[in-house]
Amino acid sequence: MSRLNNLFQQKNKRILNVYCTAGYPTLQSTINVMRSLQENGADLIELGMPYSDPLADGPVIQASSSKALQNGMTIPTLFAQLKDFRKDITVPVILMGYLNPLLQYGFEKFCAKAAEVGIDGIIIPDIPMYEFEQEYRAIIEKYGLDFIFLVTPETSEERIIKLDQLSSGFLYAVSSSSITGSDKDFSPVETYLHKLQSLKLKNPVLVGFGIKDKATFETACKYANGAIIGSAYIKALESDDNVEMATREFLNGILN
């Protein structure tokens, strides 16, 4: 059974998935960041591969990507850093990145290498569904990786069902930006997450975008199996030189 399926079988509520950018804040901090996340209660890690033009990310994550690229992060460097990470990191780890760098590296080579070092799944938000079905699905399955699609409040019901069928591991529910502020009306997001619940999807659902603190995490957990935190954690790393301390403090604030 895949590590992701195993995780959701043991725990299907309040799953905390934390995003970090490979090579940020320093080139060599990748493993340290992941280890700190595991030690302080992250159930799942989404490791971002930096790209120059990350359309689906906000300004905070883009800035961390630019920094990581300046630090010298590349896909070969990342795989070298991940060579032995499974010795002490046991939580599932998924790689998130954009199609262009993967095409240059070689898509099949990428999947083979990811599986070899112990990566569990991938998120590539700019792969079109038709191309996934025609070209990439067979390769991803060949290497036993999970592939996670995104759905949004704008995604039609029919398409949500299709994306759920094509996904494995979990489904990534992008919340609308209104979830970020307590002063804003949460009801549209509530309706959307209710709809997802009512569709009886085959995958667990994690909510991402705008989850930044304990309150938003708790709210997301009411309607889904858990949530994904990205920008808020990157900001926490930004303001503290000590990765361990920053991570402990940040996750304590969410979970306790």
Partner: peptide, 12 residues
């Protein structure tokens, strides 16, 4: 060509 876009742009 094609349309290599994140899901957030799909409906538009």
């Amino acid at each position: 060509g094609g349309a290599y876009i994140p899901e957030m742009l799909h409906r538009n």
